[in-house]
């Protein structure tokens, strides 16, 4: 059985260290480990590097750790929604490594699968390729990208059983499985921990082998861009 913790703070007890590399799940504000991010803020851990597709918004997601200057570097594909991020980046307080979104996802997946590097066409001929090994296969040029091996993974799922088997919901799955796979320790926050046997084994999205600690909590699940259509009147 996995260790189930009462709070996000206790779930991180003993695994946080200044200067560590954390892989975080989520896309925009969808499926982000919001409780664990708040707990890292409360813990005051510093000089963190985050591998995360986005950097949250000013007052939610990774944004709350930017406000407290706990982040040293971001490895991300898109950071457009965060004014404080831009301020810190432009003033040189924050390092930024842009990765194409698919390259970032594959770097995490590869790390989790014990693959230290892989070749991809993505970014050939762009600034992304500068300084990277180029190699031709069957007449096409590829660049070498490295797997990410994170010190800690923090992810958010919909349901877990007590062995850490995870089920995600709709597009909140996104980066969570690859982020979970690439960490030495993975802490998952979920909306519900269900009894053993109540998840259909054929529908497990991420096997519990990747998940070391669990915490159940209530999530705000903020919507970034609420868009609706009008009811068609016949």
């Amino acid at each position: 059985m996995k260790k189930i913790y009462d709070t996000a703070s206790s779930a991180l007890d003993g695994v946080l260290q200044d200067g560590m590399l954390i892989a975080a799940g989520g896309f925009g504000l969808c499926g982000i480990p919001e409780l664990l991010l708040q707990a890292i803020k409360d813990a005051g851990t510093k000089d963190l590097t985050f591998a995360s597709n986005n950097a949250g918004v000013d007052d939610f997601g990774i944004g709350i750790l930017l406000q407290t200057r706990q982040v040293k570097k971001m490895i991300s594909s898109y950071v457009g929604e965060n004014a404080e991020f831009m301020r810190q980046y432009l003033s040189g307080e924050l390092e930024l490594e842009f990765n194409p979104q698919g390259t970032l996802a594959e770097r995490m997946r590869a790390g989790g699968c014990g693959i230290p590097g892989f070749y991809t066409k993505t970014g050939v001929g762009t600034v992304i390729a500068e300084g990277k090994e180029h190699k031709d296969f069957d007449g096409e040029t590829y660049i070498l990208e490295r797997g990410i091996f994170a010190d800690l993974s923090i992810v958010k799922a919909w349901k877990a059983d007590e062995t850490g088997n995870l089920v995600f919901r709709k597009t909140a799955r996104n980066f969570n499985p690859p982020a979970a796979m690439c960490g030495k320790v993975c802490v998952a926050e979920v909306e519900e921990i269900v009894p053993l046997g109540s998840l259909d084994p054929d529908t497990i999205h991420l096997p519990g082998i990747y998940v070391h600690r669990l915490v159940q909590g209530t999530h705000e699940k903020r919507i970034e861009q609420r868009t609706v259509r009008q009811k068609e009147t016949a």
Binding site: S76, S77, Y78, F98, P100, Q101, K121, T122, V124
Partner: peptide, 13 residues
């Protein structure tokens, strides 16, 4: 600079 998101992967693939 906001980032390339998935654009580089899409055009390459």
């Amino acid at each position: 600079v906001k980032g390339m998101g998935g654009a580089m992967d899409l055009v390459a693939g």
